[in-house]
Simulated scan of single mutants.
Amino acid sequence: MRWFEDYEIGHVERFGAYVVSRDEVIDFAKKFDPQPFHLDDKAAAANPIFGRLAASGWHSCAMLMRMLTDHWTEDGHFSLAGTGVDELRWLKPVYPGDVLSAEAEVLAKKASGSKPIGFIDYRLAMFNQLGETVMTLKVTNIQPRRPE
């Protein structure tokens, strides 16, 4: 298990190899973001931004969360909760067939003065197989502190 005290400011972790499938893009869009460029090849081709079927930005967030959870579970990381998301940016479309990876950098940390927890600020970035940054955001996780 990794405790709040184990995290160093400036530490960067790289992980993931998530393959984006066409069926998953369409399924997510049908359920949560049913815009034509997420559902239909012809409509997506006519869109001057995407040019072809593209994943929802919210789906991109969910794929990043999956990679984080898989990586941090393997790594012994244990988050009690998150406090929110700041500065979310979708920089490039994510397409079926893309292979996504991620990076997490520890920006800051602060111990609670009253509870056995600490807050860790991260910069997260997600990349496609070409190394292009497709999404960035900042989050704060609540981590348990090492028992005395």
Rank of each mutant, 00 (worst) to 15 (best):
R2N: 15
W3H: 12
E5V: 15
D6P: 12
Y7M: 12
E8A: 15
I9G: 13
I9V: 15
I9E: 10
H11L: 10
H11C: 07
H11Q: 15
H11A: 13
V12H: 13
E13K: 11
E13S: 08
E13G: 04
R14D: 02
F15N: 02
F15V: 03
G16H: 03
Y18L: 04
Y18F: 05
V20H: 04
V20M: 05
R22V: 02
R22N: 10
D23C: 14
E24L: 13
E24P: 11
D27Q: 15
A29Y: 02
K30R: 15
F32C: 11
D33W: 08
D33A: 08
Q35Y: 07
P36A: 09
F37K: 01
L39V: 00
D41Y: 00
K42Q: 01
K42R: 06
K42C: 00
A43M: 01
A46R: 03
A46C: 08
I49P: 12
F50G: 09
L53E: 04
L53P: 04
A55Y: 02
A55M: 03
A55Q: 08
S56G: 09
S56M: 06
S56R: 07
S56Q: 08
G57L: 00
H59W: 06
S60K: 05
S60M: 05
C61I: 10
C61V: 14
L64R: 04
L64V: 06
R66Y: 00
M67V: 00
L68M: 03
L68D: 01
L68N: 00
D70Q: 02
H71L: 00
W72C: 07
G76S: 10
H77A: 15
H77M: 14
F78K: 15
S79Q: 07
S79G: 09
S79N: 11
L80K: 08
L80D: 08
G82K: 09
G82H: 07
V85S: 12
V85K: 15
E87G: 05
L88V: 09
L88W: 11
L88E: 14
L91T: 04
L91R: 05
K92T: 04
K92Y: 02
P93D: 08
P93M: 01
P93K: 00
V94T: 03
Y95R: 04
G97T: 02
L100C: 09
L100K: 10
S101R: 11
A102E: 09
V106R: 10
L107E: 12
L107K: 11
L107C: 06
A108V: 10
K110W: 11
A111E: 10
K115R: 15
P116G: 09
I117V: 13
G118K: 05
Y122R: 07
R123Y: 10
M126D: 14
M126W: 09
M126F: 05
F127I: 06
N128H: 04
N128W: 01
L130W: 08
L130G: 10
G131A: 03
E132L: 00
E132Y: 00
T133D: 12
T133C: 05
V134S: 03
M135W: 05
K138D: 14
K138Y: 07
K138S: 07
V139C: 10
T140S: 13
T140W: 02
I142G: 13
Q143Y: 14
P147Q: 12
